[in-house]
Design a protein around this nucleic acid. Sequence first.
DNA 1: ATCATATGGGTAAACGATTACCTAGTTAAA
DNA 2: TTTAACTAGGTAATCGTTTACCCATATGAT
Lengths: 326, 326
Amino acid sequence: MTIKEIAKLANVSSATVSKILNGKDQYISEATRQRVLEIVEREGYIPNAIAKSLKIKSTKTIGIVIPDVMNLFFSELARGIEDAAEKKGYSVILCNSDNKESKEEKYIQILQEKMVDGIILTASERSVSKSLKRRNTPMILLDRDISIDDNVGRIVVDNEDGAYNATNFLIDKGCKNIGFISSDNINKSSGERFKGYKKAILEKGIEYDDEKIFLQNYTIETGYKGTMTLLEETKIDGICCGNDLIAIGAIKALKEKDIDVPREVKVIGFDDIQVSQYMDPPLTTIKQPIYEMGEEAVKMLVAIIERKEVNMVKVLKTELIERGSS
Amino acid sequence: MTIKEIAKLANVSSATVSKILNGKDQYISEATRQRVLEIVEREGYIPNAIAKSLKIKSTKTIGIVIPDVMNLFFSELARGIEDAAEKKGYSVILCNSDNKESKEEKYIQILQEKMVDGIILTASERSVSKSLKRRNTPMILLDRDISIDDNVGRIVVDNEDGAYNATNFLIDKGCKNIGFISSDNINKSSGERFKGYKKAILEKGIEYDDEKIFLQNYTIETGYKGTMTLLEETKIDGICCGNDLIAIGAIKALKEKDIDVPREVKVIGFDDIQVSQYMDPPLTTIKQPIYEMGEEAVKMLVAIIERKEVNMVKVLKTELIERGSS
DNA sequence: ATCATATGGGTAAACGATTACCTAGTTAAA
DNA sequence: TTTAACTAGGTAATCGTTTACCCATATGAT
C-alpha cells in the first residue's frame, strides 16, 4: 500500500493524499478529505517514514550510546531520554558500548548512516576523537564529559561538589578515617569526585592517605574488593563511594566481616539508583537527577536540531539523601 | 556528500561506487577499487542508509516494546536483545509502553511506519488486538504471552513449572502456611505462576486459602503492601513471590515487623534479577534466563525475517537458585 | 576467422514520499 | 467588465541509493 494506490482509489493525485495526511489541507475540500481519510483507514495504509525521511531529510530519530542498559544508572538515563524524546515526537535507537571505544565508534558510524537527527553519548573512558570529528550530526555528551573542542552540548552534574558534600557528611558524623572507592579517574566524573573527597578531608585537617584510596570500576565487585582491600591494609570508619553499586558491594563486604553499618563503618554512595532505598541498610547517597538529566539532554539536543539558540552546557545539582548507611 | 559526488571525484559512475561499497566488485579493477575507497575515506563519506533502505526494502532495524527499561527484568531483556541484534547487524529502537495499551499501539504503529524489519513485544496486560491485526511486520511475543491467533513467534518460560518448584521448595523447607503475592492474573504469566503455586500446595495436602493470596503488580510496593496485608489477616511462614521485586518488598516489610527471614518466614522470588544476590538476605529465587530470552527472541525474529523455517514457539526452562532468603 | 565468455564499467529506472509550481474555476472588488 | 485573489486540486522533479540491463574490449576456444 503506497500513497499512490490510495490516491488511485480515491480518484485524486498522490499530492492531494500527501497534503491531507500532513495537515496541509487548507485547499482541500472537506468532501475529498473525508473520502481519502476513509480509504486510508479502510485499507490500513501505513505511511512509509523511510521515504518521507529521504525527502524531508529528517528521521525524527535520535541515537543514544551508553555503556550498558542493565546498569541501573544508565537504564534510568535511557528512560528519561526515551520519555522526553517521545514527547517531542522522536524515536530512540539504543546502543550499548560496554565502555569500549571500538563499539562506541562503530555505533556512532551506524547512527550517522541511519541519519539520526542527533546523538546522545555517554562516553566510554577514553576520548572518541576520530568519529567525533567531521561529524555533522548534533551531539550531546551526557554525564561523562570528555575533552573535545568540538561543537557538542554537555549535560553534567557537579561531581566535585557532590563528593565534597558526601565526605563532609561523613566527617560531621564523626568519621576520621575515610576511604574512597571509585572508578579509576581517567574518566572525568570520577576524577572530579575524587577532588571533592580530597578537598573535604584536607579542609578538615585530615591527612590524605593513598592507602585509603581504591580505584577500579563503577561496579559492585569493585566495592566489594575495594572494601576488603582497605580493611586489610588500613583502618577505616567511613567509605565514600564513587557510586551506589560500589556502595552496595562495600556493604556486602562489611557484612561478611561482621562489621556493623553504620555503627562501625559508615558508607555513602553516589547516584541514588532506584534500589538504593531498598538495601539493608538503605543507602545514604548523593542523588543525581538521573532521569532529569536524560530529559535535559533531549531538550538540548532537540533545540540544537531545530537550530534554536541554546546554552551548550548545563550543570545540574546533586542532593544528599540521608538513609541508614551512615 | 553523496555517492554521486564520490563518483564524480573518482571519474566513475555512481553504480561503480555503489558496487564497490557493497562488495559487489567482482567486475571492478583493483585500481579503481582502491581509488574509490581512498576518496571515500578522504572525504569522510557516510552512506545514507535511509536511501538504501528505501531501495532494498529493509532497514536492518528492529523495534522492541517493553513496559519499562528501568525495571531490571526488562533492562536485561533489552540488553540481551540489543547484543544479539548487533551481532546479526541490526539496530534496535527502544519503546517503553508503561504497560499501557495506548502507548503500545502507538509505538507499534510508529515502528511499522519506520519500516522496522521486525518487532519484539513484551505485551502489556490486555491484548493489543487492533494494531496486531493486519500487520505485515514479523513479530515476536516475548515473556508475556497474549492470546492472538495471529502469526507471531513466542518466547516464553515455563512459569507454572517454576512456581511449582518454588512452592515445593518452601514446603520441603517446612513451610505450612505459604502466601502468594504477585501481579493480578489477567496477565498470563502471573496466572501460570499462580497455577504452579496452587498445584504444589494441593499436591502436598495443604489447604488452599484465598486469604493468603495478594495480587496486584510486579512491583516492590506490591510486595511490601501484600506482605503487610497477609501479616495482618492470616498466619504465614513462607511467601512465594511472583517476581523478585515483590520479594524485595516483602523482605522489607518483614524486617520492619522484626520478623526474621528466613527463620520465621521464608521468601522466594522469581526472575533472578541482577541485584537479587546483593540483597540481605540474598534472594532465593527461580531464575529465568532473561538475557538468553532476549537473544532467542532476536534469533527467532531474524529467522522469520529471512524467511527461514522456524518453530514459532520456544519454551525456556527456569532454575531454582538457593540463597539466603529461604 | 568466428563465436563465446570474461572483464570493467555505465545508464537509467525504480523505491515512496514531498512540494514547488501550475491550472482552472469561482468570487469579489474596482 | 476586467482583474485580483481565493479555492481545489494536479504535475513532475527530487531525495540518495541499488540494480537490471546494456555496451564495449579482451581473451580463449574452435
